[in-house]
């Protein structure tokens, strides 16, 4: 029968926790007790077997499976805002957080919509200059040309105030009418087209001309500014139902 004290010493030695004094004492005991010596030898051999067991390599499937199985967004949301100590533990706080987040999202969405509306309604990004008012009553009539043709009738009045030139046109016709006004853009600059009646009228400005057409009557004003006042000439061509019916050069 081995004393319990020495059994414990044997295990302590196997685990490497025995002191030098205890070790000497143990080995003196082992010399005198064959049963203890056998126990010691068997236990040491057992420990040796265990310590020689190979370490197995883990299958690469483990990592692959794990990384494919976990919810990668689990810690990606709330933690980023609050660090490691999550405050989102109590339901009331969670609810308040969700509510605040909802309000914030609402504000962002509303702001976005407002911005889009304002962009659609007033995109002034490419406009520049100054705003002024010209009193049309102060314009002087330079020329008033009556138009009396079988297909149409009316007047073409040229009015001027400084270097501002208005061409006021009134044409009465039962047929599709078109007026083509050609001008030298190095002398004149078209600045405005103002429709004076409610008839459907098409305004088509080209590089050196402007084309105005309608299904019948036309009342409009074309506004120019002149660059070289002494050489202002425009050519006016009138078409009725697609056919040229008159052409004139008008000195401004």
């Amino acid at each position: 029968m081995i004393e319990k004290f020495y059994i414990e010493m044997i295990h302590k030695e196997i685990d490497g926790f025995i002191s030098e004094t205890e070790r000497k004492k143990l080995h003196r005991y082992l010399e005198t007790t064959s049963e203890a010596k056998k126990y010691y030898a068997q236990l040491s051999q057992t420990s040796e077997f265990l310590d020689k067991m190979p370490r197995l390599e883990a299958s690469p499937n483990i990592k692959k499976y794990v990384m494919n199985s976990i919810d990668v967004k689990r810690y990606a949301t709330s933690r980023k805002f609050f660090g490691n100590k999550s405050i989102l533990t109590k339901p009331v706080i969670k609810l308040a957080f969700a509510f605040s987040l909802g309000i914030l999202c609402g504000i962002f969405v509303y702001a976005g919509i407002l911005q889009q509306i304002s962009e659609r309604t007033a995109n002034n990004s490419d406009l520049y200059g100054s705003i002024g008012v010209i009193d049309t009553a102060k314009f002087e009539t330079v020329k008033e040309i009556p138009i009396v043709l079988p297909e149409l009738s009316g007047t073409l009045a040229v009015k001027r105030l400084g270097n501002n030139i208005d061409i006021q046109t009134i044409l009465n016709s039962q047929q599709p009418t078109e007026m083509l006004i050609e001008y030298d853009e190095s002398f004149l600059k078209l600045v405005r087209f103002t429709l004076a009646n409610s008839t459907k009228t098409f305004f088509d400005p080209g590089e050196k001309n402007v084309r105005i057409s309608s299904g019948g009557d036309m009342q409009f004003t074309l506004s120019f500014t002149d660059v070289h006042i002494e050489n202002d000439i425009i050519a006016v061509k009138l078409f009725s139902d697609g056919r040229l019916i008159d052409a004139q050069e008008i000195s401004l």
């Binding site: 483990i62 990592k63 794990v66 990384m67 976990i70 990668v72 967004k73 810690y75 990606a76 949301t77 933690r79 980023k80 660090g83 490691n84």
Partner: peptide, 14 residues
């Protein structure tokens, strides 16, 4: 990992 870095967890698995 708790800050949302999944790569960190991958390192722990490795």
């Amino acid at each position: 990992c708790l800050a949302g870095n999944v790569k960190a967890f991958e390192r722990l698995v490795e």
